[in-house]
Design a protein around this nucleic acid. Structure first.
Lengths: 238, 238
DNA sequence: AAGTTGCAGACTGTGGACAGATTAGGCTGC
DNA sequence: GCAGCCTAATCTGTCCACAGTCTGCAACTT
């Protein structure tokens, strides 16, 4: 085992993203935006040509995403975008409720008025985005709100777990149309959560969160139940 | 973005672990066994020489572990074993309670008598190991029990999150001496959990789990509070 | 005509090498 | 004796090259 004895280096202030990191972020963006769909293969050489870099940084990025479960590896064949089953939807959302409820329980005693205003501002962002039908901004603010709650818990494990969950949720809803809900409804659904948190009551805050997440859960599950066990594209024509 | 249109391949029956995967497992084993300590640097070239392979598979393994948070990356300097603060201990154990309690809640309605016997057998393993003062086997069985509970929840997200938590816990306790508890006490502490689960009562099962984990939490925290904010080895002599 | 076999292309897994950055140590000056 | 600078060694980040394997297609056999 390779190990040398020295101090942990001080974290540097200026972050220089390596090529691997940039590729990782790019792939994550592709996974969560819907450009990559279930069953899609990541072609290392093609991606290397497109980005004008060698295959190694790409391999490292892909390898990490596979270890985190966002891609599935098939030896000697390559890496593929995950396919989701209805059970995956249930697993993700039930656990998401567990994590975010825990985040609220830990965050509430730590929060001050400024934090509550912060959350309200994010909800205002959502409402403004809904008014302008800016779905991208609406989604961004939605993600930011849930993430902010986890940050306010000041628990790194919670935040880390939520990042994984959040990525999966985005992958789930990336290329499906969540109907049954207008943008404004989606934005307003977050008001009760933030207001309950502002009141300081844990039980009602968690209840409001669960109510909202269960509604989203049902909507996503509805789609995955309809489209079958795994919404996979058909194989290419020949 | 690189993507081709085809089906997700069927999982193959014969698994051939790539060098990257083998190195990843080796490093994980080093992280959780205590051979790698806080602040230790992973020397890619040295590890490559030791294992008789090139640096590429090693880089991929390290990159993945860093993305999962088990190693910290310092650009142009390398990768280092994490240092843990008392807050890390609190974050890990409070979240661990959250996850395992959730696992019990999901698992209980799904379990049958065989599952309960299964858990009892693991506890018996622990007791037998404690009788023979086999601390390695005791630890293995301990890990297996907590993991089994998460598996019984049949929730992949829970299991995945627990794997991360479990790795961190092992890293936390890898090179510290958990005194204040005899092996037999450690083994017997799990009996109430399994028996409460066998009774089918969710509340008492969760209570028993929390009681056990909080005791472990306090013991680990005690050590990290004593040894200072980060139990780092002194820089090497020269 | 259907199934099987051999071949060619493509892609992954791995090895090896180079440039830039960082660190460590020696040297000079005070 | 100590602080600061300079130089050399070490190591990471990246690129390129090669070999083994897999997939798809074509030719062949029955």
């Amino acid at each position: 085992m390779s190990q040398s004895v020295e101090q942990v280096p001080a974290p540097r202030l200026i972050e220089t993203l390596s090529l691997s990191d940039q590729v990782r972020n790019l792939l994550l963006e592709g996974l969560t935006s819907g450009r990559l769909r279930a069953g899609d293969r990541i072609n290392e050489a093609e991606l290397a040509r497109t980005l004008g870099i060698s295959r190694n940084p790409i391999r490292e990025a892909i390898s990490g995403l596979a270890q985190r479960g966002f891609l599935v590896a098939s030896p000697r064949r390559g890496h593929f975008m995950r396919a989701f089953t209805p059970q995956d939807v249930n697993d993700v959302f039930s656990f998401r409720i567990c994590v975010e409820a825990f985040a609220i329980r830990q965050a509430l005693p730590l929060m001050d008025a400024a934090d509550h205003d912060d959350l309200r501002r994010i909800v205002d962002r959502m409402i403004a985005a809904a008014e302008q039908e800016d779905l991208t901004e609406l989604r961004q603010a939605d993600i930011a709100l849930h993430r902010r709650i986890c940050e306010l818990s000041q628990n790194r494990q919670t935040l880390r777990a939520h990042e994984g969950i959040d990525t999966e949720v985005q992958m789930l809803v990336a290329y499906v149309d969540l109907d049954h809900e207008t943008p404004m409804e989606a934005a307003l659904a977050h008001v009760p959560i933030v207001e309950a948190m502002a009141s300081g009551d844990v039980a009602s805050s968690v209840a409001a969160l669960e109510h909202h997440l269960q509604a989203t859960w049902a909507r996503v599950l509805d789609i995955y139940d309809k489209t079958g066990p795994a919404p996979v594209r058909l194989a290419g024509a020949h």
